[in-house]
Design a protein around this nucleic acid. Structure first.
Lengths: 246, 246
DNA sequence: CGAATAGTGTCTCTCAGACAATATTGC
DNA sequence: GCAATATTGTCTGAGAGACACTATTCG
């Protein structure tokens, strides 16, 4: 495990790890995207006990020498094929009520992931099926463990993050239009935004979007082609993007 | 541990918990206050291995049937005598690098606590001494484990929380003046704020402060007595309190 | 041309920051 | 009165929301 400092070797030799109460540690992923205009979460149907037949957030046990973040990224790539670089990943928090897993004492470290629109992934080990489910249609009483609670925390955190960070672009492809970005805000917040004020706001906030200098192909509805942008280098939005009705 | 649903009893009987990699789980507290005008954190000097003689955040192992939040509150009351109701407590996150503890694999769940100005607490078990240390004078290379990292995350979270929540009042006594609150912002953010604009802002934000209708005793410097307030019921600030120079 | 989408300009209102002026205390 | 702190008022500039208007595409 860790580095041992001078003078501690003898003491460590006499140390018994079993003196500490044993826990299992898992990572669970709140993996969010916007697909077909819906703010959606990746859910699996469990094929093994406990909670067999229930739906759940993808996740699994952390290995003995594996960093928590690394375990999350490994699961992400394993279950969805999403590479870390193509998504935004941050820790959501630890969930560790004593009764959350019937098997034994488990602490789950939840991760929040923003991914661009992807083809539906194929089921991995322990899962019967896997699908993107719009967050407002999730049947909370069919969720395994305390995943309804974890999901609610992730959704609320995501909504708040869009206010003061430029992370909405993490739901889009590398090259995006202002309308792409606006549709992310509208899906995540569940509101309609004025396209004109939105345009002025995001193009006027330094570091939010960098122009590519090339127009996007015209969409199925026709209309003037939109300019393409890439994510800027800002990490915070100043001033913040305000969520209506608060 | 958890509730067992119908049809899972037989399967559980055959289940072997040792199949999962064992972890220890601890809670560590980033316990913050404002004392003598300084934004300060509670640190202990360790009297036991590992990191004997180093300074550390107060914390300890989570018991087998103890909820994470309950473990944090227990430690809080044990080490400082602060009651949960007198302080604000929220989870900061999980820290679990494989090398963070030389004894074994440990995941620490860190908690952030805002406490009002208190008399210096007495040392508890495993600690040689305990003291409030101004956060800008902490010697980071003398901190045990990854506590420099945890502390930095807590301090940054605290600074951000003051922007969009009324939690600055959690650093004050139950009855406080506008100047008390301003001194909290000034200490935590390390800036000087205009007393006049600050007054207009906090008294004009609904739910931030409720007037008590009684003046505070006059301070040592004289001057007009300030009105007393209590914390309002708002949980978010709209519009936010803006940190200067961003 | 009309329909649809993209993007700009203008007006108003709110609010933050600067700072003058007034109010209330102790000495 | 004088010093110190509290509280109110006034001005200005930035920015959000409402919405008219112009630009560019397809059919």
């Amino acid at each position: 495990m860790g580095r041992v400092r001078k003078g501690e070797r003898e003491w460590l030799a006499a140390y018994d790890p079993r003196a500490f109460p044993p826990f299992a540690v898992t990572v669970d992923m709140v993996l969010l995207t916007v697909t077909e205009g819906r703010f959606s979460v990746l859910l699996v149907e469990r094929d093994t006990h406990p909670f067999r037949g229930f739906i759940a957030l993808p996740g699994g046990f952390v290995q003995p020498d594996e960093d928590l973040d690394a375990a999350a990224v490994r699961r992400l790539e394993l279950e969805t094929g999403v590479r870390r670089s193509a998504a935004y990943v941050e820790q959501l928090g630890a969930f560790g009520a004593p009764s959350r897993d019937p098997r034994m004492r488990v602490v789950s470290v939840a991760y929040l992931v923003f991914a661009p629109d992807l083809p539906a992934p194929r089921p991995g080990a322990g899962a019967r099926s896997v699908a993107w489910v719009p967050v407002d249609t999730v049947q909370r009483d069919r969720l395994a463990f305390d995943h309804a609670h974890v999901l609610a925390a992730g959704v609320e955190r995501a909504r708040a993050k869009l206010e003061y960070t430029p992370l909405a672009a993490a739901f889009c492809d590398e090259e995006l239009t202002v309308a792409d970005l606006r549709r992310v805000y509208e899906a995540v917040w569940g509101v309609a935004l004025d396209p004109r004020n939105f345009h002025r706001k995001v193009t006027g906030t330094p570091g939010f979007l960098d122009p590519v200098g090339r127009p996007a192909p015209v969409g199925p509805e026709g209309g003037r082609p939109a300019a393409l942008y890439r994510r800027g280098r800002a990490t915070q939005l100043h001033p913040a993007m305000l969520r209506p009705s608060r």
